[in-house]
Write a protein that binds this DNA or RNA. Structure first.
Lengths: 203, 203
DNA sequence: ACAATCTTAGTACCAGGTTCTAAAACGAAG
DNA sequence: CTTCGTTTTAGAACCTGGTACTAAGATTGT
């Protein structure tokens, strides 16, 4: 009747919208914003499968808590899908919102580098492997949503102590977007380390 | 009387401990673990200034929400403390737990690179600036807790369109730890952008 | 006009508390 | 032993932000 009241469909969309950009809103507040009774709000939440305020907060809290717990997951950037130690490796990394310049949605260079660098270090079968120097070419800008496939090839034989050369080529589909030549210090393999854990990873 | 029951002081210490490593515990559960009544638990929380479960969850949720909200703060890595557009800039970046290899507490190369890259891009006074290529030398490993001071110098004149060369030197104290030569694409300054916001930053 | 859908109202109940009052229990000191 | 001060426990009333359920209006489509 009143102009403000929307049909169910649109109201529910707005409800999703409102909760999405302020998850801390109570049903009470929602009645004010949507001009319907609290029961309607609750029926809507039911239908949409949106949990109550406390449940939402709990989920957020748990998520952040888990994140903190598993922080060393950023030890390796990108998802290593194939690894032949001292020979080659492949990793996949999807460019998300947090990796791009907000203005033009182009990936910041250091994320592309981070993937390549992580892979170059992972592929070296050594207890301690550190980047010594690198030579980079950002062939073309990478955009939000694109999947970067980085391929690393070790150029020097594992016998050679001290330094290893690794070439990393990163592709989006067929297209090469980045190329880097890394020199990696290796620690002469004093520590015997079967490398399993070190190269473990998940998104 | 029973062996399990601790004096007040120690009980409160344990209570803090328990909540610290599982913030999602209810008072009910605490009574079980500490073998005292729920009132005692609550008095203890009062005295210790520990909020109730729901409040704790809310705080965590808000903290994580704020983090997500302010994520584009990672647009620039490091704290830019001085910036003369098209000429030079300085940024400070402290190596924290999340930036190092957990095993040896040495900073991962891509974080050092990220600081330098961010600064190199920030110092170019242009609406769109992207890293085209770079040449890096990691002079010595950087350790947990060290403060990296990156200094960038633009080598090409601002008049030159298309590309700019920027040299970045990163120091810990007196010691140079990283050196990089960046080639940055610039967008011929079509968009007029007085640069204020773009280079704003906080930790 | 009448059924189907949508909306509102109201009650009972729940978790996980706060606040307040008051009674036990305990420990040390006189 | 008694008495005082602290500590612990108990209990009732109340709060928020809900769920679950029943039932009565209001609106709509045909």
């Amino acid at each position: 009747m009143t102009i403000e009241r929307l049909p169910k469909r649109q109201r529910q969309q707005r409800l999703v919208q409102i909760i999405e950009d302020n998850p801390f809103v109570t049903d009470q507040e929602l009645t004010r914003q949507l001009k319907v009774s609290i029961q309607t709000i609750r029926l809507d939440r039911m239908e949409l499968g949106i949990p109550e305020l406390r449940e939402r907060m709990k989920l957020m809290a748990e998520r952040s808590y888990d994140q903190v717990r598993s922080l060393p997951l950023d030890e390796v950037i990108g998802d290593i899908v194939d690894l032949q130690l001292d020979r080659s490796g492949i990793s996949i990394f999807e460019i998300r919102e947090e990796h791009v310049f907000s203005r033009n949605h182009i990936a910041r260079g250091h994320h592309i580098f981070a993937q390549a660098n992580s892979l170059a270090v992972a592929v070296i079968n050594d207890a301690i492997a550190l980047t010594a120097s690198a030579d980079l070419r950002f062939v073309r800008p990478v955009n939000l949503g694109e999947k970067c496939i980085a391929k690393a090839y070790v150029q020097t034989s594992p016998a050679r102590r001290g330094k290893a050369k690794v070439e990393v080529l990163t592709y989006v589909g067929e297209e090469m977007v980045f190329q880097g030549n890394f020199v990696i210090y290796r620690s002469d393999g004093e520590e015997h380390d079967e490398g399993g854990l070190d190269h473990a990873n998940r998104d």
